[in-house]
Amino acid sequence: MIGILALQGNFSSHIQILNKLGYDSKLVKSSKDLDNIDGLIIPGGESTTMTKLIAREDRFVKSIKSFSKKHPILGTCAGLILMSKNSFDDKVINFGIIDIESERNAYGRQVHSFDTRLDLDYNSKNTSFMASFIRAPKISKVGKNVQVICNHDGIPVAVKEGMHFATTFHPELQNEALIHQLCFGDG
């Protein structure tokens, strides 16, 4: 059973991917919803809105952090920002689950959003897939234990640290299950 943080954002496309992979899914709206799930997705949406809604419950952040000690978390776009160590913005909370620094809306406004083909370079799996970058962030710094698994124009766009994965793009908008499979499957 994989949970999807469902405070705001595009949870339904992630549910479709999980269905495709044969996983049950559950919407997570409070810390008690983290019980009995084996992994968590932090979806795309507005990181400022999610920050506001996470803060409603005192122990939510703490619960997510302790969940991350035992279970894999996948963050896409806004999810990557929240999982970062720092995104240098007071309006946004950072869990520090992956040792990266990120910058919000780094490609500019919506007219600069794009789809592109990316090459995955991970565990000798060389494959390519389509990804959507929607008002996407950029990863500005990568810690020493972080593995970069995809680049675009020489900039890291997908990373892995321990069992956690984060992408600046949306595989789920392309109905692409690859990253979900890496994170929640057996690799």
Binding site: L7, Q8, N10, G44, G45, E46, T49, S113, R135, H170
Partner: peptide, 10 residues
């Protein structure tokens, strides 16, 4: 449509 999808639940 990708941006519209990100505005869901908001």
């Amino acid at each position: 449509v990708g941006l519209a999808e990100m505005l869901r639940g908001g």
